[in-house]
Amino acid sequence: MKNTEDQNLEGPAVLKKEMSRRDFLDWVIKGGILATLSGMLFPALAYLWPVMGHGPKVDMEEVAALDEIPVGGFKKVFLGGSALLLIRTAQEIKAFSAICTHLGCVVDWDGPKREIVCPCHAGVFDLEGRVVSGPPPRPLPTYPVKVINGKVFIKL
């Protein structure tokens, strides 16, 4: 090191960048170890990334029988790791995520008032899932529903 510094005083500035054999090997070894470690790290991180996060399931899933839910009534089901709220109106069955968009409490169906209410912070949604009042920032997600042979199917 001392030698190169001395040379720098008189010689051209290019010498400053000259790499010794020792530095080169040092870089090769450190680089090799770093490459090995990062090569191990990437698959581990990719493995940790949620497998289910790649999009919704394609198939419709049976969640209830039509008889179970009276007109104006509701049923809560658990599908694919999240809670859903099924509401039967006079015409059809509607499916909402039962997770309040505010802080994640599970919402309820208030039959007489025809509203979806969150018990935690008094959030109220209408039958389209839109926010009527209260703190929720977004409407409730809805899901397509099909009724076939008296069975209720949902597509997540």
Partner: peptide, 9 residues
């Protein structure tokens, strides 16, 4: 079968 490289781990 499902996770990334899980078989290897």
């Amino acid at each position: 079968t499902t996770t990334y490289m899980g078989w290897l781990f």
